[in-house]
């Protein structure tokens, strides 16, 4: 956590207005989900503006992963609605293709394809999903690898990279598809401490570029520096959401206070 505290603050100025900027990037309304009889998400309401940076935190098992996995259809849900850029996600995980093209996801375990080189990891979906011609796909991949500062590793295999490098490749792989929203599920939790910083820096770059971000993380320094809003979850509910200053310095809910005491000491 201390590693992230000194991250440079991105410019939080107003996002450039365009004709669609009034539609929220993500709108979750009254969403509920059960795993069998276990009510994992209860009546979730969350509205994310374009270019907004949301950090989701909360105790283990509170449903953070499940919530963001619902946004790109990795999990289905039983009640309520999720609308991504004006497109409603059907409750029964169908017609997700359009939404998945707009939403990138980065996982705790990187999930790079181990049998492909870094470059191939970055071109595979471009070529097969977006039908981008080979040479163009390579150009885009190299651009993104430069952005995450590892173009020199392009010909290596994921198994030859450090955890931090792998996670940056995973970010580049997502960015190659030009998503307008990025979801991060504890992207630094399985990294050695000395590698946390390089990944957080990469995410800070993204935030600076105006990407809409929802990030589940326990890096409170990062949250404070980057987030427009912090969403705190407990037992399947959104308990409190507030801008970082308010969230950390004057949390309203008792559960939030207890959580912050444990995490920030």
């Amino acid at each position: 956590m201390s590693a992230a505290a000194s991250i440079p603050m991105p410019d939080k100025g107003p996002i450039a207005m365009n004709d669609t900027s009034h539609t929220p990037a993500i709108e979750i309304v009254g969403m509920s989900k059960w795993f069998g009889s276990f009510h994992v998400l209860e009546d979730i309401d969350l509205k994310v503006k374009q270019g907004e940076r949301i950090v989701v935190c909360g105790p283990s098992g509170s449903g953070k992963s499940t919530m963001i996995r619902c946004i790109n259809g990795l999990e289905d849900f039983q009640r309520g609605r999720i609308v991504v850029h004006g497109q409603e996600l059907r409750q029964r995980a169908r017609a997700l293709d359009d939404v998945r093209k707009k939403v990138g996801m980065v996982f705790q375990q990187f999930n790079l394809f181990p049998h492909l080189t870094v470059l191939e990891n970055c071109t595979l979906a471009q070529r097969w999903v977006h039908k981008v011609p080979g040479s163009v796909a390579i150009d885009i991949a190299m651009q993104q690898l430069e952005k995450v500062r590892i173009p020199e590793q392009a010909q290596k295999y994921p198994g030859q990279l450090s955890g931090g490098q792998q996670q940056r490749v995973a970010i580049a792989r997502s960015l190659c598809l030009r998503p307008s929203i990025m979801l991060f599920d504890e992207p630094t939790s399985s990294l050695d401490p000395e590698m946390v910083r390089e990944v957080l820096d990469t995410m800070a770059d993204l935030a600076r570029d105006g990407m809409t971000i929802i990030c589940v993380t326990h890096e409170m320094g990062f949250a404070r520096g980057i987030a427009d809003r912090i969403v705190f979850m407990d037992q399947g509910r959104i308990v409190e959401q507030a801008p970082p200053a308010e969230f950390f310095d004057a949390p309203r809910e008792e559960r939030t206070q207890r959580f912050l005491e444990q995490v920030v000491r």
């Binding site: 998945r100 996982f107 999930n111 999903v129 792989r173 997502s174």
Partner: peptide
């Protein structure tokens, strides 16, 4: 094969 490989594929739109 870890579940994450399937999920990465799905989330990339394959």
């Amino acid at each position: 094969i870890p579940q994450g490989q399937h999920e990465a594929g799905r989330s990339l739109g394959f």
